[in-house]
Structures are given as structure tokens and as C-alpha cells.
């Protein structure tokens, strides 16, 4: 087995309507580039980036999903193992914002109960095309008790911050399990594709 290059593995998921910029956000984060010439994501895509938080090397395994309804059966099967979910809408498109509620319901149905969530209002560089105010974004996030941020993959606004805040929230949550850290680490190393047990008792 290859030498371990990280302390913890977090599995994250990007969801939201088609065309809101999920792939661009991920590309900005993982490769620090922006391009409008992306093909549409069919099914599910995958990127890895290692970040350092509080002296720990954290490997983020990030799954990028297709937005259209047809792919939901394929993509919801990934919800279960996710420790963090980023829910993205486009501030220039009303429908993508309205659908946030639908996506939240999806999370409730398919994800672990204690999954860390964050709502991102993307394309905040396009101020002249904006139809969703920042306040409306904040309000819906507040209503559901979820973190919120406006981002721009194009201008690299809040992208790194969004991922590190989400990772940090997961880290906080797993701090409770710190006592068991050595054990957890071994588990992570051996079963890299499976999320560690989310909580001691779910039911």
C-alpha cells in the first residue's frame, strides 16, 4: 500500500441545478483555473485536493454531480457516504434558487443526518444580471440552519474559503471522536472509499 499522505479523508458532494457552475467551482478549487468551456457533467465526476487545517492534512475527495432530474437516482446513491454537501444555485437564475428547497429535501431523504451542509450562491461577479439578492440567500440558509456564502468561480471569490469552512465544520464534528483518532485513521487508510461511521448511533 502507498505511504499515507494525509491524516483524514473527507468526502464532499456538490449538488444543484444544471448550469449553476458546480464543475467550475470545483475546477477553480482543485486546479485554480476558470473556463467557460466545460462540457455538461453526465452522471458523476471526481476530484481530490489535500488541504491543511489545524496542522492536519485533510484529503478532500469531492464528487461533482449532474444537475438534471434524470441523474438523481445515480447521484443520490452518493449522498449516504458524504460528510459535507455543497448546494449551489446561480444568483442570476431564479429557478435554481427556488429549487434549493427541492435539493434540501433530497439531502434529508438520502444523506446522513449529521452531514454538514453549505449553500453557495454562485456567479456573484455578474452583479448586473443578479435576480437573487444576497439577503434572500442568507434568509433561506438561516431558515434551515445552514452556512451560506456567495461565490464566484470566475473571479475566485470565496471558493477556497467555502471549502475550508465546510471542511472545518466536519473537523469540529469529528473532534468528538478525537480520542479514537488512531483507530479512525487506520480505518480511513484501509477503506478510503467509505466514510467513517457518522455517529455512534443513528436510530
Amino acid at each position: 500500500m502507498a505511504k499515507k499522505t494525509y491524516d483524514l479523508l473527507f468526502k464532499l458532494l456538490l449538488i444543484g441545478d444544471s448550469g449553476v457552475g458546480k464543475t467550475c467551482i470545483l475546477f477553480r478549487f482543485s486546479d485554480n483555473h476558470f473556463t467557460t468551456t466545460f462540457i455538461s457533467t453526465i452522471g458523476i465526476d471526481f476530484k481530490i485536493k489535500t488541504v491543511e487545517l489545524r496542522g492536519k492534512k485533510i484529503k478532500l475527495q469531492i464528487w461533482d454531480t449532474a444537475g438534471q432530474e434524470r441523474f438523481h437516482t445515480i447521484t443520490t446513491s452518493y449522498y449516504r457516504g458524504a460528510m459535507g454537501i455543497m448546494l449551489v444555485y446561480d444568483i442570476t437564475n431564479e429557478k435554481t434558487f427556488d429549487d434549493i428547497v427541492k435539493w434540501l429535501r433530497n439531502i434529508d431523504e438520502h444523506a446522513n443526518e449529521d452531514v454538514e451542509k453549505m449553500i453557495l450562491g454562485n456567479k456573484c461577479d455578474m452583479e448586473e444580471k443578479r435576480v437573487i439578492s444576497k439577503e434572500r440567500g442568507e434568509a433561506i440558509a438561516h431558515e434551515h440552519g445552514i452556512r451560506f456564502m456567495e461565490t464566484s468561480a470566475k473571479l475566485n471569490i470565496n471558493i477556497d474559503r467555502a471549502f475550508s469552512e465546510l471542511a472545518e465544520a466536519i473537523l469540529d464534528k469529528s473532534a468528538g471522536r478525537e480520542a479514537d483518532a488512531d483507530h479512525a485513521r487506520i480505518a480511513v487508510e484501509r477503506r478510503p472509499s467509505r466514510a467513517p461511521p457518522a455517529r455512534a448511533c443513528c436510530s
Binding site: I44, P192, S193, R194
Partner: peptide, 20 residues
């Protein structure tokens, strides 16, 4: 063993007849 399921890659391969 790695739980690398066929959906992760072959869903797109097959649906799009490898066009991507």
C-alpha cells in the same frame, strides 16, 4: 475491493456511447 462501482465511470461511457 476498492468499492469502485461501475456507475462511477461506465454510466457516462455507456449512456453517451463514449462520446465524452
Amino acid at each position: 475491493r476498492q468499492e469502485l462501482r461501475p456507475q462511477y465511470y461506465s454510466f457516462r461511457w455507456l449512456t453517451l456511447l463514449l462520446s465524452q
